[in-house]
Amino acid sequence: MRDDVDMNKLEQFYKGQTARLQRTFTEEDVKKSSELTKDFSPVYNQKEDVWKKFYEKPIVPALLTEGLITQVISEKLPGVPCVLLQKDLVFYHPVHVGEEITAEMVVIDINADRKWVTQKVTCLDEDGKEVIKGQVVILLLSNQE
């Protein structure tokens, strides 16, 4: 949780406010994700050749890459207790094991009455290619009425 933000003040957030995090996904990350979700698609498995028909390397599950986005929300922006209300994401290019991915969130709208913050989502690979784009709407949880 962010120390510089009073959880009770929606005014701490503003349009254009930006946060980002980077992560490199590993084979172990993919394995753990598959075990938790029971999604054992061969396109994620380094040891199977099915992915070679479609991609240059095995891909990282979408749910795992979405985890980086929610990590930015929970740790950075807003970095305070909140609930994800809506997400709309387009996966333009696959994320591969071993690639560093940067998730960037930008506040594009604040609805003070509902305590909703809408953020633009952009994820880039290490070459700067956009791999995911979209937006999320979050509900800020606070004691403020």
Results as ranks from 00 to 15, higher is better:
Y14F: 11
W51G: 05
S74Q: 09
Q46E: 13
E99V: 05
L85G: 09
Y55L: 01
V5G: 00
F13C: 05
K47V: 15
V131M: 08
M7Q: 07
G67C: 06
V137M: 12
V83K: 10
Q22H: 03
V106R: 06
Q71P: 02
K120N: 03
E48T: 12
V117Q: 07
D39R: 12
M7C: 01
A19E: 04
A62Y: 01
C82Q: 12
Y55A: 01
V30I: 11
M7P: 06
V30E: 10
E145C: 07
L141M: 14
Q71I: 02
D88Y: 05
I69Y: 09
V30M: 09
N8K: 10
M105N: 10
I138A: 09
Q119F: 00
I108E: 15
E100Q: 12
K53M: 14
G98M: 05
L139S: 10
K47H: 12
L140D: 03
S34V: 04
P81V: 08
P81Q: 05
K32F: 13
I73T: 06
V107E: 14
K120M: 00
L139I: 06
V107H: 13
F13N: 06
N45L: 13
E11I: 04
E48C: 07
K9L: 14
W116I: 07
V90N: 05
V106M: 06
L140S: 03
P78G: 04
M105A: 12
F91Y: 15
E130Y: 01
H96T: 09
D3N: 13
V80H: 09
P58A: 12
K47D: 15
I59R: 13
Y14M: 04
K47Y: 13
H96A: 07
L36T: 10
V131G: 06
S34D: 03
K87W: 01
K133A: 12
V60P: 02
E28N: 11
F13E: 11
K53T: 12
V5R: 08
E126M: 06
Q71N: 10
Q12P: 00
